[in-house]
């Protein structure tokens, strides 16, 4: 039990250490000079302020304002968009791959895989820009504004950001599901179940899905971090007053460290829950 706990917490602590080490680097390297003593002092200050988070302030010009109750508003907004997009993309990926495997013929599948290839190589910047253009075009044609571009704290838009953020992960999940499902379908137990007369649609969710959990975990690890940087771009382009816009506006070493840790914690927690689920369901160990 104790061993397990250490295994789960050590990577988290390591990452936090790393973030703190990076936090003061702008002080360490100034042009071509290197100031080690100033760096050490700054690092000490960073650690001290992490221990007393209520004293952290943010400012562009004075007066300084306390960071902590203030930051939760944009933070919760961004997290909502982030996690809903993540779960939406898992659901959509699953749904689409089930549909493709069950109902589509071979030539359609080939076309789908081509489409996946193209979509996968599009940069997030392009996708978000095109979506925004689409909204403007739609507004010009029909007069219906799907999403307002000036988001105020009270009226925040969720629909379009979540959709825009979930496109790339959906494509990646879809691709991964297709690969592991096609591999899994040829296994003996699937053939056996089909021979017993269990319909294919019933086998898929209950048997095959469970066995692909491992690969979902590893994939979602990298997808979650990819989505974080997509979130930055999204908030910038769609003018959402989210967490990362806040971070960009008031960027300082303290804020950077705190913000990265705040982004790290929920994501890490989610992966941990995933890990425990896989352990309970399949009795398989995965590395965080």
């Amino acid at each position: 039990m104790k061993m397990n706990f250490i295994k789960n917490v050590v990577p988290l602590l390591l990452t936090i250490c790393m973030i703190v080490v990076f936090g003061a680097i702008p002080i360490l390297i100034v042009g071509t000079e290197i100031h080690v003593s100033a760096y050490l002092i700054e690092t000490k200050n960073l650690i001290l302020s992490l221990l007393h988070p209520h004293e952290i302030t943010y400012y562009i010009t004075k007066p300084e304002r306390p960071l902590f109750p203030e930051i939760f508003n944009p933070y919760l907004y961004s997290l909502t968009v982030y996690f809903s997009a993540f779960f939406l993309s898992i659901l959509l990926g699953l749904l689409l791959s089930f549909v493709t495997i069950n109902f589509f013929s071979k030539s359609v599948k080939r076309f789908v895989s081509f489409l996946v290839f193209v979509l996968e190589s599009l940069p997030d910047l392009f996708i978000v820009a095109v979506i925004q253009m689409g909204i403007v075009w739609f507004f010009k044609k029909s007069g219906i504004l799907v999403m307002s571009f000036t988001s105020l704290p009270d009226e925040r838009s969720y629909f379009i950001p979540i959709i825009a953020l979930s496109i790339l992960p959906t494509v990646q999940f879809f691709k991964m599901f297709m690969l592991s499902l096609e591999e899994e379908i040829q296994m003996d137990y699937v053939v056996f179940a089909r021979a017993k007369g269990i319909p294919f649609i019933a086998i898929l969710p209950f048997h095959v899905f469970r066995n692909t959990l491992m690969s979902i975990f590893y994939q979602s690890k990298s997808i979650l971090w990819m989505m974080l940087s997509n979130l930055l771009v999204l908030e910038y382009i769609l003018n959402m007053n989210g967490f990362t816009s806040f971070l960009f506006m008031y960027l300082s070493p303290e804020l950077f460290v705190v913000a990265l840790i705040m982004l790290l914690l929920p994501t890490y927690l989610l992966l941990l829950v995933f890990k425990i689920c896989i352990k309970k369901l399949n009795n398989e160990e995965v590395v965080l």
């Binding site: 990577p11 790393m18 990265l260 982004l263 994501t267 965080l288």
Partner: peptide, 13 residues
């Protein structure tokens, strides 16, 4: 473990 810790930080940021 060290390099894993590194991958949790978004590069762009």
């Amino acid at each position: 473990a060290l390099s894993n810790a590194f991958q949790y930080i978004p590069v762009v940021l």
